[in-house]
Amino acid sequence: MTDSARIVRRHPDELVIGLVSVSDRASAGVYEDQGLPALREWLGSALASPWQAVERLIPDERERISQALIELVDDNGCDLVLTTGGTGPARRDVTPEATLAVGTREMPGFGEQMRQISLRFVPTAILSRQVAVIRETRSHAALIVNLPGQPKAIRETLEGLKSEDGAVLAPGIFAAIPYCIDLIGGPYAETRPEVIAAFRPKSARRQARG
């Protein structure tokens, strides 16, 4: 299978996820990438329904990032694309611009919530420029979300923050992602509630089997 081949779903509800790590040095082999392993590990712990991933490790180059996102959605048929890295104010940080360039609709709530979570730890969270968009083609649509670059921050923004007794202090953004994918025509994804409870209105929930 080539990188541009459409992914074959092994189950009707299988979620196809594009994972993109943006880093000049990691893509050049200067150091080992941490973003892709962190994303794989978290998704493996959080998703209760079937999924498979298509991965890219690319440098901080706007055209390369945009092209990767287009290929993952249009050619590979990803339902969700998660990027990590390249969202700060440095001049080489161009992931948000590359993402906005390929989106057909912006989803500002994701970036707002990610910054709210990070602000609980560092005041420099306001320097983060993560965005989220929907990319639509004639027959397919996908949600694309920029995540932070550090594994700890990736987990916190996806999963949210909980107190020692398990109470939710700040909702993670992944709680809204399965329903968003429903609304744009993607598969019905389910999560493990002990990690992150996906929220859907009652009218959108499937009846429990058995």
Rank of each mutant, 00 (worst) to 15 (best):
D13E: 13
D13H: 11
E14N: 12
I17F: 02
S21P: 00
V22P: 02
V22F: 10
D24G: 01
R25Y: 05
R25S: 10
A26R: 12
S27W: 03
S27N: 02
S27K: 00
G29L: 10
Y31N: 00
Y31F: 03
Q34M: 14
G35H: 05
L36P: 03
L36G: 04
A38P: 00
A38F: 09
R40P: 08
W42R: 14
W42K: 05
L43K: 13
L43H: 09
L43P: 03
L43W: 07
G44Y: 13
G44E: 08
G44V: 14
S45M: 10
A46S: 13
S49Q: 06
P50N: 07
P50Y: 08
W51N: 11
W51Q: 11
Q52W: 01
L57V: 12
I58P: 10
P59K: 11
D60H: 13
R62G: 04
R64V: 15
R64I: 15
R64L: 13
R64H: 08
I65G: 02
I65Q: 12
S66N: 07
S66D: 00
Q67Y: 00
L69E: 04
L69G: 02
E71Q: 13
E71W: 07
E71V: 05
V73I: 12
V73M: 05
D75L: 07
D75Y: 06
C78Y: 10
V81I: 07
V81N: 11
L82F: 02
T83C: 02
T84K: 12
T84N: 04
T84Q: 06
T87D: 04
A90L: 09
A90R: 04
R91H: 15
R91V: 15
R92L: 14
E97Q: 15
E97N: 10
E97F: 06
A98E: 13
L100W: 03
A101E: 13
G103H: 11
G103T: 03
T104V: 01
R105E: 12
R105M: 11
E106D: 07
E106M: 10
G109Q: 11
F110H: 01
F110I: 06
